[in-house]
Amino acid sequence: MTTMTQARRGTYVDRPSPSGLADVIDLILDKGLVIDAYVRVSLVGIELLTIDARIVVASVDTYLRFAEATNRLDLYQQGGRDLPELMEGMAEGGAKGKTRGAVDTAKEKLEGALPGGGEGKSEEAERQPSRRQRQS
């Protein structure tokens, strides 16, 4: 929760240090210099590198998810709870866990799929060809 972060760090901005694996993945897998596709020979083990699950694709599922989130919101209001109570409810895990971003999920899958990075789970993650495979 933001409020806890403030209390602990005396700041409104969380500065994770050292950066977690998810942050590192996001930085080094699809950014940084890449010269020629062929030099990335060692990547045969992690074809999943080409994952690009960043964009939320608008779909019926997405819409239903938002509709559900919106309705859940209203249930709180009907119960007449005020804001601090509402925040408590969220902190207890009522809402927060469900509303994490899609990319976190994708990253968890990725971590699981990396050799040595998990139990060798092979859940399908969305993949598409890298946009910058061949450069210069």
Binding site: T2, D14, R15, G32, I35, Q135, S136
Partner: peptide
């Protein structure tokens, strides 16, 4: 972060090497 407190949780990574800025031109 202060302006958005309670509305947006803000995180900052860095200083970092310029990962997002080093792409070679095609």
């Amino acid at each position: 972060g202060a302006r958005w407190a309670g509305r947006i949780r803000l995180r900052m990574l860095g200083p970092l090497p310029p990962y997002d800025f080093v792409e070679l031109e095609e």
